[in-house]
Design a protein around this nucleic acid. Structure first.
Lengths: 191, 191
DNA sequence: ATAATTTCTTAATCTAGGTTAAGTGCTCTT
DNA sequence: AAGAGCACTTAACCTAGATTAAGAAATTAT
């Protein structure tokens, strides 16, 4: 398992005391599949780091159609960044897809950690920058690639997810309907 | 004009000495419209802050089709974040659309500034977080809204740009062809 | 085990937006 | 001011992907 301290150590180095302090400001919890950690309309007060299991974030359009923004499995962070930083009600849901162990950091604790360990500003800057780059790439992919190409990219980028999450969620992430996804998959298998 | 120091002051406060130090690590330049500040294939060594004028970033698909990632006018930052942080050749172009004055920060100088004024880590963290949120929203919009809705959102978000940049670039940003954009605009005017 | 609920597939039909192509009006040059 | 490019429009036709609907397969709950 990739621990949160290892995740941090990829970009900055903490002393053992700092590591202990950091962990003291977090809480680790287990959640069953289908648990909703955050609902649209709520203010996101925490960010989540996934120790094990799978989560997803999504919004719901016109009370009908879901759109998956993000999947997170072992070693990934997930949250509603908009709501978290603006402290306004967000429009994302965060749901557990596969039984998970999650490290929770409240915004309050994160702010305290920034005071006590300023190096963490750097860590979260790098985290945000990397996430930004990934989102920019996905945006450009949505503008310039076909559904088939986006699916192939998804497969090579997240090979483990394909087996594990319901394909309707992958369809949603790619940006197509489940029906079209199914048709596309059948077409690809013939090749 | 919104200066870069005012932009920073929105999120952190620098002492006069720190402000002087910061400015000493930047370079301000004028560019004529049509100037290319960065080409695909190059490593982005700088980030840009726009004092005046308009810039855009875009990529080119299959050597034919341009896709606009971002516009930047007075008070905005622009760059190729992927290339800048990975130090690998990027695939974005950055072009001046309207005569501009630009503050340039090299990565080297930015790193030195991070050493000398650690508070800046916080500023750039917040900058990256805000940009991330904007990209997430645009991604979700591309997945869930029609071209017409995306155009309306663009108009209310960037009212000044509509008069100033060629509409083919707005079409590209929205994610439609210039021909369809033109048709859509005519349809909207009839209402 | 069995019923109930989800998820996935298939197929017919439809549409938002793409493509191609031709023409009109700009705005730079020189 | 005449030409050369660009930028925009219009229109006919095309297609990737959506919608609707119905059945099959897989999970989940009882």
């Amino acid at each position: 398992m990739q621990s949160i301290l290892q995740n941090i150590a990829k970009h900055i180095s903490l002393t053992p005391e700092e590591e202990t302090l950091f962990l003291s400001k977090t809480e680790t919890k287990q959640f069953k599949a289908k648990t909703i950690l955050l609902s649209a309309g709520e203010v996101a007060t925490c960010t989540y780091f996934v120790n094990s299991g799978i989560l997803r974030s999504f919004n719901i359009n016109d009370n009908i159609i879901e759109h998956v923004l993000h999947f997170a499995c072992e070693g990934w962070w997930i949250g509603d960044m908009y709501s978290y930083i603006s402290e306004k009600p967000g429009n994302l849901f965060i749901e557990v897809l596969e039984d998970a162990e999650v490290v929770i950091i409240t915004k309050e604790n994160q702010q305290q950690l920034f005071q006590e360990i300023p190096k963490l500003e750097r860590f979260f800057r790098i985290l945000a920058e990397n996430s930004l780059v990934a989102h920019q790439e996905r945006l450009m992919d949505n503008l310039s690639l076909t559904a088939e190409e986006r699916f192939e990219k998804f497969c090579s980028k997240y090979p483990t997810l394909i087996q594990k999450v319901p394909q309707k969620h992958i369809a949603s992430y790619i940006g197509v309907t489940p029906e079209f996804f199914s048709k596309m998959k059948a077409r690809l298998l013939k090749k």
